[in-house]
Amino acid sequence: MRRKIPWITYAFMALAAVYLLAPVLWLFLLSIMTQAEALSTPPHWIPEHPTLANYMAFFSPSERQSLMGADAIAAMPRAILNSVIVGVGVALGNVVLGSLAAYSFARLDFRGSQTLMFAYLVSRMVPAIGIMIPLYVVMQRLGLLNSLASLIIAETAETLPFSIWLLAGYFRTIPRELEEAARIDRCTWLQAMLKVFLPVALPCLVATAVFGFMSSWGSFLYPLLFTAGSSATTMPVVISNFATDIHTDYGLLATSGMFAILPPFVLALWFQRWIVSGVTSGAVKG
């Protein structure tokens, strides 16, 4: 479609870019300011004394002897690692469990399939706040408290309905001939899946994995509840430590925010194309 693009489109684009970017830009500016400069009015859009001290503090905690900063800083690397482990676990969990269930909806007809899909959907409607305590009890009975496994499981359960829906939609668009050809070649079902079906569904598997990762990356209530101490704590919990009401240090808070943004942003950017193409059929036909 080659047509002239009206100027208003560009105006809207510029506005949209500002809305999308400005808040994060401000976060970045705060991260290179001292606390005193962050309190300036009007704000210094270009910091007069830009400093990397907030970032350095994360690499050599002795740089900063703030009240709670030091402890939260020490916990940060482990927390980021934990968040990545949980995120990857959730992504894998969604892809594996989601594909299995989605295949049944896309390819097999069975009694109660509609009810089951509906049940999946309904489970997304539960407010996490409302089941926090029962969920804690479940984790305790499963003996999973204070483990990353508890977070992976809980977060997978939370994101799974969406993944199943997404994958089922995509799977439906895959031509049946593919599996039939595999069957004629005497592949087992599993072989047919692994060799033929899933590779074709790859964009959607990637999209599902990224959605799962993103959701678990931001999750705060579950790690807060299920973990204690640094061994299994994740990044949002540590960030909330920076934001305690007793000693808010804007610079450190902003810097921790920058650290939190970076991994998912890189991931999103990296897999951008797969995400869009993976959602495509799911959203249209799902």
């Binding site: 934990n82 990857v88 483990s147 061994s231």
Partner: peptide
């Protein structure tokens, strides 16, 4: 990287 890491990190 994920596979190399233990999934269950008990306290």
């Amino acid at each position: 990287a994920a596979a190399a890491l233990p999934l269950v990190g008990r306290g």
